[in-house]
Design a protein around this nucleic acid. Structure first.
Ligand SMILES: [Mn+2]
Ligand SMILES: [Mn+2]
Ligand SMILES: [Mn+2]
Ligand SMILES: [Mn+2]
Lengths: 221, 221
DNA sequence: ATAAAATATTAGGTTTGCCTAATAAATATA
DNA sequence: TATATTTATTAGGCAAACCTAATATTTTAT
């Protein structure tokens, strides 16, 4: 059982997250931005991960997780999301307060610990932000989600996740009383700025395109 | 609010623990042994801690915590012991399984987290090994404990703590069904090897001096 | 009081993960 | 297609925590 450094784990998770969005190789600069580091440092680490067969790397064309890299990334993601869920459900944290702490807790090395947390939580399949939690074997429960900004006029359904889980965005949602499970109805879209007219919690609400493009919804059949 | 590295925190805690036993300066070699490192590394770090005014250090005469060093050490000790308690009480860990994980968890930086754990546990004053848990302000509840090996013939009371909390010792205690709170009666001591004849759980038990000198007891008044 | 033994410090390296500045390659633009 | 711009890599350093080997100091034993 090979072990990874905190830094390696952070890189693997970041590559995983970026890989979910675009399906080309993950760029050096995008990693540098997410990891709050410089491009030169990223190149160096990506080469190290490639040596360890955790990523495929071709100079100038970015990195992609190998099968083993993916497996490892998923265990870090699993730990991150289980800890977030624990913090909210058992320690009274708000959904905008969990990320930074989970960022540390995800690196604790103890299989017994994470299995016990998982059991305590009742083997949850999603975290406080609606993101799927991989099970012990790395399997994810696929959700049928779409971006609110991509929905057609007249669409109704419920909010099931957030794409951006930064405190500022989450606090905006709190202010507007938008939680996971909240029902929406899309009335209209503004030509000019792509703002959306919605009904949320029985009241009309106008949201910018930026906001709608960070909310995942599941449409009512 | 100055922050410390994991390594600095481990050193502060180790100095604290050793300082409890002997009251002269904590020696370089004792720290090296406890921290699984080499004397040269200890000297280096102790000098760094001295620069940061966390320890008093005089070359060749060991280190002692300053007031700020003590305060910091106590917050690490507090976190370590709260996590151990949490692992046992909420996650089903045995008392011999918690140390290694707590060694990692004690370094998580989040006041909100540790206060929430403290609250969840009901503000405990001792950990699974009977060691006192400092409160938020660093205050310890003093216990009236003595070593079993120091008790007089005929003494009775209860086991209240372990001095050595290594898995091997704890597993020995499990095997003999000795837990914190178990009553003892001291029948006799062997001249030759200082072994003790006890009554434990209503049954006679012979224990070596080494074992008795790692058990804290509180005598029945 | 001296010599031997035990402890501690210093000197000189190594590894990991960062950084800035210089260079190279890929992509966009004219 | 040639040039400019953007993106990525390499070169050369730095700080934190380790290490081994050489040296210094203290402690113990003669
Ligand atoms: Mn992290
Ligand atoms: Mn999350
Ligand atoms: Mn530790
Ligand atoms: Mn303990």
């Amino acid at each position: 059982m090979i072990m990874f450094t905190t830094s390696e784990e952070n890189y693997l998770k970041a590559i995983y997250n970026l890989q979910q969005e675009e399906d080309s190789g993950v760029s050096t600069s995008s990693l540098a931005e997410i990891l709050n580091t410089k491009a030169a440092s990223v190149t160096e680490m990506v080469k190290k991960l490639a040596d360890k067969k955790l990523v495929h790397y071709k100079k100038y064309y970015g990195a992609e997780l190998t099968n083993t890299g993916m497996k490892q990334a998923l265990t870090v993601v699993r730990k991150h999301r289980l800890w977030e869920t624990f913090l909210v459900q058992h320690l009274g944290f708000q959904w905008d307060e969990v990320h930074e702490v989970a960022e540390q807790l995800e690196h604790i090395k103890s299989e017994q610990l994470i299995e016990a947390i998982d059991k305590l939580l009742g083997y949850p399949t999603q975290d406080p932000h609606g993101d799927p939690i991989p099970d012990k074997n790395g399997n994810l429960k696929h959700k049928n989600q779409q971006l609110l900004s991509d929905m057609e006029i007249g669409s109704t359904g419920i909010i099931v996740g957030v794409k951006d889980s930064s405190p500022t965005f989450l606090q905006y949602l709190d202010k507007e009383k938008i939680t996971l499970g909240t029902a929406y109805k899309l009335y209209s879209k503004e030509e000019f700025d792509h703002a959306l007219e919605l009904e949320i919690n029985g009241k009309p609400l106008r949201v910018s395109h930026k906001i709608a493009s960070n909310l995942f919804v599941e449409e009512k059949s």
